[in-house]
Computed example of a mutant assay.
Amino acid sequence: MRSLPYVTGAAAAAAVVLLTAAGPAVADDSDFTIKDPRVKESSGLAASRAHPGIYWTHNDQDEPRVFAVDSRTGETVATITMTGVGKPRDMEAISVGADGSVYVGDIGDNLDGSWDHVWIYRFPEPKELKDATVRATQFTVKYADGARNAEAMMVHPKTGRVYIASKNEDGGGLYEGPATLTASGTNTFRRIGDVPWVTDGAFSPDGKELVLRSYFSARGYEWKNGRLGADHRVRAPIQGQAESVTYSSDGKALMFGSEGDQSGVERVALDKDSVSGGGDKSPSEEGGSVADDGISGDGGNSLTYGVLILGGAAALVLGLKRLLRRR
């Protein structure tokens, strides 16, 4: 996904300065950096069910492979190469299902509808973490209302049902797959709700909440009987290329990932405003609107804040460059 320019290292540092000036940061030693030089566009993130502290990630346009990264060191401890799936077009999401399998969503379509179908790949999460080649199952996916561009795919941790959140120019939609995916035919995903324009999403380990993130924000939704419930604000970090999100394996925090070389994953502990039924009222209750960036209600202030931070960082970088030139 390349629709937002990367923030330079200096600009990111400047943004940190501005954030620090705005208020104290919460120290957390659970953040980590993906150190593998092969991971240049970490587009999805999923906490392992079989191996605590391990997170699965992948590039968006690459060989059909995923990487197991140890959050304690940032090092890749296993590379899994999938066979039987052809060459991926735009892998954007990853999730670990109730069946203990890893699901990879080859669901991106930057031309907003040029492909009449996309794919989901599935393979069992390995019991031992080591480099391996596995034969994956490939599922063909179509949408009942026409081709979609999407970056978010979520597998419910209890029912095993797969959901996709689209991000076409006319707004986002939440799509529900069949109760059981089939590898022998087409799996039709049907729209069951409207959601903001998002880059990733994840279900809580207990399956009672769905979190969706965008470039500058994240929102949580109660999940009731397979449908979206009340929504509320969720704290999210400002990242140069805000791309992925997953719950930690214990469900006590959200892990937010970004793209780029040596990309960072930031842990945000869940607080009382980030639990089902808490936080803000839904847009329909308070008369707010959902913008394409995924902000709803008074969350628009977060977008303004994010733009000001990035703008200030850019200005600081330019000032530093001018100062160096004078020398």
Rank of each mutant, 00 (worst) to 15 (best):
L18W: 09
G240E: 03
Y215I: 06
G277M: 09
H117V: 00
H117D: 05
P64R: 11
I295R: 15
L318C: 07
V96K: 13
T79Y: 01
R38I: 08
P24F: 02
R191K: 15
G160C: 05
G299W: 05
L254A: 04
V317C: 08
D29G: 04
D36I: 10
K35W: 08
T159E: 01
L45K: 05
G100H: 09
V16M: 13
T137N: 10
W115D: 12
D145L: 02
T186M: 10
G277L: 07
S258P: 10
R235S: 04
A47M: 08
T140R: 14
G287M: 13
W197A: 03
G306V: 04
R219A: 14
A15D: 10
S3I: 08
A179R: 14
T83P: 04
H58Q: 13
Y143E: 03
V234I: 14
G229C: 01
E169T: 15
A10C: 11
A13G: 11
S43A: 06
M91H: 00
G294Q: 09
L303N: 07
T182H: 01
G84K: 08
E176W: 00
D106W: 09
P5F: 03
S274V: 05
A230C: 01
Y247N: 14
R267H: 14
A230I: 02
T81G: 03
F32R: 04
A11I: 06
D36F: 15
A144G: 00
G287T: 02
M154C: 13
A179V: 12
F203C: 12
W223V: 04
V17E: 13
E209V: 09
L19A: 12
L111E: 15
L212K: 10
Q138K: 15
P5T: 05
T57A: 06
W197I: 02
K87C: 02
G84D: 02
